[in-house]
């Protein structure tokens, strides 16, 4: 007994105690990692709709300017940029041409840029005038009640969501204007992932 006690005392005295701690930490740490191992599906938010990175993009069904309906779920399989904007918001106005050019550059690769106007904070004549002034061709959805903006927890305009082909949000940029190169590099990453 005395001999084993002496050995323990010797091990725990001086620098050697760190070697003992290393061995204990290695065994316990590896056991803890093994205990807390989970399949990837258990930690992914991909199946829960929520407006943040790593989660499924919430439902979005809105009227467009032509009297039709835009349904985000029908765009599954394509990379989608959802941009919340208003015509009175200077950074929204500044980034809209870059969004239009990004759409033009990658429409054939499976990209859709969806511009969701916060119509509850805007006026339809101002929206139409802005679209004509800019010569925009990308789809414009009208969030007349502001319900979709609330569902996406939009706290500042513009806010831009990048959604992958599986419908999962991969990037959220609050504020703007977002540069064309940021749009293109992010889109290229997402298009490359799914192809």
């Amino acid at each position: 007994m005395q001999s084993s006690g002496t050995t323990l005392n010797r091990l725990m005295a001086g620098p050697q105690r760190w070697l003992v701690t290393m061995a204990v930490a290695l065994v316990l740490g590896a056991s803890w990692i093994w205990q807390s191992a989970v399949p990837a599906s258990a930690v992914s938010g991909g199946l829960i709709p929520s407006p943040r990175q790593g989660f499924l993009a919430p439902d979005l069904v809105l009227p467009d300017l032509e009297g039709g309906t835009i349904d985000l779920s029908e765009l599954r399989g394509q990379v989608v940029i959802v941009n919340f904007w208003a015509s009175w918001c200077p950074p929204c106005r500044a980034e809209m041409p870059a969004l239009e050019r990004t759409q033009e550059a990658h429409a054939g690769d499976g990209l859709v840029v969806l511009a969701v106007n916060a119509t509850n904070q805007d006026s339809l004549p101002a929206v139409i005038s802005f679209i004509e002034e800019m010569g925009l061709t990308l789809p414009i959805a009208l969030d007349q009640s502001g319900e979709v903006g609330r569902r996406y927890q939009v706290r500042a305009l513009p806010t831009t969501f990048f959604i992958d082909r599986q419908g999962v949000i991969q990037e959220v940029i609050v504020g703007g204007p977002v540069s064309e190169s940021t749009l293109l590099s992010t889109v290229q990453s997402l298009l490359g992932e799914g192809s």
């Binding site: 940029i173 540069s179 064309e180 940021t182 590099s185």
Partner: peptide, 9 residues
Amino acid sequence: GIIALNFST
């Protein structure tokens, strides 16, 4: 665009 800094870039 290089100077348009964003955390995601």
